[in-house]
Every structure is written in C-alpha cells, then in structure tokens.
Design a protein around this nucleic acid. Sequence first.
DNA 1: AAATAAAACGCAATAAACTGCAAATCTTCA
DNA 2: TGAAGATTTGCAGTTTATTGCGTTTTATTT
Lengths: 247, 247
Amino acid sequence: MLIEERQNYILTQINLHNKVHTSDLCNELNVSLDTIRRDLTDLEKIGKLVKVHGGAISKSFHYPFQQPAVYAQENKKEIAKKTLELIEDGMNILTGGGTIMLELARMIPENLKGTFFTISPLVALEVAQRSSIDVILISGKLARNSYICTGPSVIRQLSEIRVDLCLLGTNSISSTEGLTDTDWDVVQVKKEMIKRANKLAVMSIAEKLGAIQNLTVCDLNDVDYLITELNPEDPELSKYSKVNKIK
Amino acid sequence: MLIEERQNYILTQINLHNKVHTSDLCNELNVSLDTIRRDLTDLEKIGKLVKVHGGAISKSFHYPFQQPAVYAQENKKEIAKKTLELIEDGMNILTGGGTIMLELARMIPENLKGTFFTISPLVALEVAQRSSIDVILISGKLARNSYICTGPSVIRQLSEIRVDLCLLGTNSISSTEGLTDTDWDVVQVKKEMIKRANKLAVMSIAEKLGAIQNLTVCDLNDVDYLITELNPEDPELSKYSKVNKIK
DNA sequence: AAATAAAACGCAATAAACTGCAAATCTTCA
DNA sequence: TGAAGATTTGCAGTTTATTGCGTTTTATTT
C-alpha cells in the first residue's frame, strides 16, 4: 500500500468520524504504530488534522475546543458592546435572556436612564444591581435551563406594553428561514415581544449564522438590526441584506 | 475514548443544562471521579466553565450575586428548617423574599413536587435551579434594595391565584400591632399575598419580635404559623398566643 | 461539633509517544 | 541490470501522558 493511500484513508476516517485512534488505524492498515504516528505527524504539519494523545481529531472538531468558550465569551462581549450603542437615555427596552443579554446587562452604564422590561430574572437582577434604570420583570413560569419566563401570563403582560427597542439573543438565524427556535413556549413569547417593539435588534454569534431550527420566530424582514462580532462587511453576512442594518 | 471527546461532552452538557455534576459525568463517561475532576480543572483553566463543589457551571451563568455575609445566618437556617416541615408534596406555595426565604429555597429537597409562586427572582432562580418544582414568578417592578417585585401588576396577578400556604419573612412583628412594615408598595403586595392563601406562615428571627413599623400588614390573628429559632415554649413567645401555632 | 461528601495530593501502573538505529524497499542513473 | 543513495518501515529503549487508588485536606450538612 502506498503512503498516499494510507494517508487518504486516515483523512477519510477523520472526515467521517471527526476522530481516529492510532491503534485502530494500525489494525486496519496493518502497519506499525510508529508508521501511523509518522503519518499523523505529517498530516498535522500540512494542517489536515490535529494530533492528540491516542490519535487525532478533525480541525473543525477541534476548533470548538481551543478557541470558543474563551473566544465565544469575548465575541459575546463584543456584540454586547455594539448593542449598547443602540441604547439611549429615556428609552423603553424589552429584552430576552441568554448569555449575550447577560453580558450586555453587565455593561450598562450606571447613569443610564430608562426602563428595562425583561423576561429574564437574571438580566433583571443584573441590571437592577448596577444601574438606576427601572426594571420591570415580566413574569410567568420559569423555564428550567434557560431561566426565562414563558407562558400565557407573559404574553398577556407583554400585550400591555409598548417599547422602543426589543433585544433578542437567538439560537439560530438563517438567510432563508429567518429566526428559528426549538421550544414552542419560547417562540410564542418571542413573537409577542417582537410585536410590542418599534425596532428589533437580534444579537447572534457568527457561529450560529445559518442554523435552522423547527419553529419560526420571525422573518429576516422584521429584523431591524443584526448584531454579530463580525465586521458588517464580512462576506458571511452578505446573505442577510434583508435586514435593515447590520452592525 | 479520547480526552478531547470527553471534554467536549462535558462542554456540551454544560451548554445544555448550564451545570454538570461530577458524579453524573463519571457514570456517563465510565471514568473515575479524579479523571472528571482533572478535566474540569483543565476546562476551567482555559475559561470554559467555572468549577463549583460537586461539579461545574457555565461561565455565563456564574451566579452573579455573591451574597454578603448574612446576619444571624445560623438562626435563619434553623427557621428555614422548621418551615420546611410545613411543606408537603403537591402543595401550592406563595413566598416573599428575604434572606430567610433564600435559605429555605436552598434547602428544598430535589424531589419535592408542587408549585412555587414567588415575588422574588432570587428565590425563583434558587428553587428552579435545585429542584423539580414548578416555579412561577410573579412579576412587576423590581424594588432596588429588596430585589422583590412590587406594584399593581403584582397585585393583579396575585388576585388570580389561590395557594395552600403563604410564607412571609418579616421586618417587624409585635404582639399588639401584628405584622408591620415601612414600605407602602411592599405592604400592598404582602396584604394581597395573605389574602390569596389558605394558611399564612410568618418567619422571623427572635430579634425582630416586638418591633413596630408605621404600616400595618396584618393582625396576629391572621397568622397561622409563627416560626422563630426559639423553642416554642420560650417565654419571649408567650405574648404571641393569638397566633394559631408557634414553631 | 460531628458526620458526611467532595476535592486535592502524591504515587504507581499502564499506555502512548518519541528517539535513534538498522533493515527493507524504492529511485535513479550508469 | 544493478548498485549507490534516499526513503520508508519496524524495533528497542527511553520519555512523557493519562489514569485510578489510597490518603489527607477541605466543604458541606446535620
């Protein structure tokens, strides 16, 4: 068997399973461990995979390891910072929950005036704690895991308010399907939130661009601002031109 | 299984549930506790999560409220313990806020069934986090110092529910004036809470017995249980015999 | 204050990776 | 064709990584 064949086989396996074990390969290819190791070293050198103890993993699979959590956190802060520019004194703002919203809440300047409506107790506490803004918590059943309030009571209370700006984090936004989500209760609430606001800003890390879930929240046309950590000119964002303004 | 796979699994679980238990992971992944601990330490080092006793939590949900040293915490725990005895499976319970309520929330057994209505987001989060109880947050304007919700919207929502037991912490309870408080908004809410419950339990540290504030919440006759850290036979409590039961 | 559970620490066993070397195989050119 | 040189391979010895276990320390609960 040619070296090339062997290395192609390894790459195929990586693409298939996102990982390979050195020992498996050595059985499947009938060569010694050392040979496999040398192959992996070569392939790593030309950037086709990442070696790890016991084998190797695909580069894309590896990506969420080294970079994200730290970086996603940084990205989220970047997004929060951009979003903050939309907020002015005296505004009525309605917010959802999620990690980006929490980052935003932590950045709100102490002297900002205005009213924050939110369905997230975490955001409510965070904002109330560090600013002089009025915080109105929209209540209802507390969803486990996401820690936001949902249910008919939330919808009813939302129907009674009117705000300048609605800030939503999102699980998935795609150029064809718009905003989508998985949880029915959450979708109902988000729909109502959007209805109650003059402007809608959607915050999303680039990683989630293109993702599609089962339930539709709203069309891209309804989105006034799309805020990501990317440069607005980034080609990844070109598909989202239906959105009023990309930040 | 590769280390990277294992750590990726842990991160997935964290993103999904916002928390993981060391022992769960060790079962699910079939490795020793030590290995999981080492993984968690690694992941914490690169900022992917925050280790806590018993497991780890998502960085973004890192509980933002480090509670200030709670005054008379031992006594409050004792009171919370006694109060817990009033709670049975399947009950509808309505609670206020305050440090004693938080202690109680932390003691709620994981397997308790029932519904918790509360005007305190902190209590709501605490209960939702550590039990399978349904948590309904009664919302409104978030009062800055007490972190509880007040206002007409709270009153209206309260008027629509009916619960078995209302749990209130109190600032002041006296044998002549009953429950009293200083904040008008808070008093309105407490009055409505009491109205909506079949039984009322008042929790108070002995130190506050005898204190009187300007605004009346309710009469001693309305109190079904008075719970303090003292022995029910304690002479200090003899003046409060109007209360149905002293614990 | 005692009992319990979890975490930290050091240690040893095992598995994997690395190193240098020699044998086997392949290239290339007379 | 066949021999020098280069490449590839497998092997033995050494180094490094990973893991589980017993013990001690620290947290948490009663």
